[in-house]
């Protein structure tokens, strides 16, 4: 029974670790389908983590925290998207702007508001675990799937909702058309830039919630707590062939690598630098193998 418990424990924490990845990848899916490689996911996520946490700490409301995180990231995404599209700036350099802006502005505001540039730990409401006392009682599976906190289920709902928007809504169809053939969209009398900007703002919205899903369950904001997840989400989209379901699967595999390395650290006392490096290494290997397989 013990190995089953261990496996269940690793899978359960993988599902929790998957939440920010899945949300960021879902946001990145919109920009990817609109024809842009959005390297700003990382920074947008970090902004969501900080503003979401600050708002939740001040208001005492989890929901307000999530919304504030989503709003702040959407705002930064709007600025970054406007510079890219309206001023015709290089999308990677403006993406870098967002990635450098987020850790800097959070450090400055953290010093101004909380008097510290390092970890901010304040009382925020703990996310509920809505199914723990009902379905959570099922042996093994209950612990894995039904004892998660509410943000995990929220991420599943949002990812599913995003898939519907992408394939079934007018907005989603036009975003996809913009990525496939922008000139056809223009010829049909629509503005491709409008749909690109929409995709960037939507990616900001999802990344903001992704960031909030990092800081709120932890009850703390840690500088650079996104630690490369935005980049991993980008690779997950790529490996998932820009399809929502496969992207989610790729996110789960990366989350599994993360939770397994956390488990290994506890078991074997591996230095923390190696643990932090494992997701990057796994992503690099998956990216290389995935790219070469696609080109065969």
């Amino acid at each position: 029974m013990t190995w089953l418990d261990t496996l269940g424990g690793i899978t359960a924490s993988a599902l929790e670790a998957m939440t920010p990845l899945l949300l960021a990848a879902t946001g990145g899916l919109f920009t990817e389908l609109a024809g842009m490689l959005n390297i700003a996911l990382e920074g947008l996520m970090l902004a969501g983590a900080f503003f979401g946490f600050a708002a939740a700490a001040v208001s005492g409301s989890l929901l307000l925290g999530i919304l504030a995180g989503a709003l702040a990231s959407s705002l930064i995404a709007w600025i970054y998207g406007s510079a890219t599209l309206r001023l015709k700036a290089n999308v990677f350099i403006t993406g870098l702007a967002a990635n450098i802006f987020a850790p800097s502005v959070t450090a400055v505001l953290s010093a101004a508001w909380f008097g510290t540039r390092s970890v901010v730990a304040l009382a925020v409401p703990e996310p509920a675990r809505p199914l723990q006392t009902s379905l959570g009682r099922i042996p093994v599976l209950g612990g894995v799937f039904f004892s998660q906190h509410s943000l995990v289920y929220l991420s599943w709902a949002l990812a599913a909702g995003a898939a519907v928007i992408i394939y079934r809504s007018v907005l989603g169809t036009r975003i996809r058309a913009t990525g496939a053939r922008a000139e056809a969209v223009a010829a049909a009398g629509f503005k491709p830039d409008f749909y690109k900007l929409s995709a960037i703002i939507i990616s900001g919205f999802f990344c903001g919630i992704a960031g909030a899903s990092l800081s709120l369950p932890l009850g703390a904001y840690v500088p650079n707590m996104s630690s490369g997840r935005g980049w991993i989400a980008l690779v997950a989209i790529y490996l998932g062939n820009r399809r929502p379901g496969r992207t989610a699967l790729a996110c789960f595999v990366f989350a599994l690598a993360e939770s397994f390395s956390n488990y290994a650290q506890g078991q074997f006392g591996i230095p923390s630098e190696f643990i932090l490096a494992i997701p990057f290494a796994a992503t690099l290997i998956a990216l290389s193998l995935g790219t070469s397989a696609k080109n065969e």
Binding site: A83, A89, I93, L96, A97, I100, P103, V105, A107, A111
Partner: peptide
């Protein structure tokens, strides 16, 4: 970190 914010402003506009 204010220098990071200034750097972000540079990145935002320099390729416009």
């Amino acid at each position: 970190e204010i220098v990071g914010i200034i750097q972000a402003v540079i990145f935002l506009f320099i390729t416009a």
